[in-house]
Every structure is written in C-alpha cells, then in structure tokens.
C-alpha cells in the first residue's frame, strides 16, 4: 500500500487512477483533487507530510 502524500489515505498502487512522477519517484493519490494539489506545490507536501483533504 502507498500513502497519498496530500491527504494521507492509503492507496493501492495497482488500482490507483491518479498518480504522478516527481523527481524519479511515483506518488499515488486518492483523487484528482489531491493530485492537482500535489502538483501545485510538491515540495511542501514532501516536507510537511500529509495535510488532509485539500479544500477548494
């Protein structure tokens, strides 16, 4: 199991629909919202850890 770096939820890499590649590592997300949020500021989430569901 992988962990969504934005909301902290567990995501199954085999089934994940949303993922991105950043600095040679694959990150999986529970939703397009988390993915877009991560792509907006990846460094923030990698340093601070999951922050919960993004609000928009």
């Amino acid at each position: 199991m992988a962990v969504d770096p934005v909301c902290g939820m567990e995501v199954d890499p085999a089934k994940a629909k949303y993922k991105t590649l950043y600095r040679g590592k694959v990150y999986y997300f529970c939703s397009s919202m988390c993915k877009e949020e991560f792509e907006r500021r990846p460094e923030y989430y990698l340093q601070h850890g999951p922050q919960g569901m993004p609000h928009r």
Partner: peptide, 8 residues
C-alpha cells in the same frame, strides 16, 4: 458504482 475514496 465507481466510488473508491472519501472524496468520491
């Protein structure tokens, strides 16, 4: 059908 996460 198709719900797979809390956001959904």
């Amino acid at each position: 059908l198709g719900m797979h996460c809390a956001t959904c």
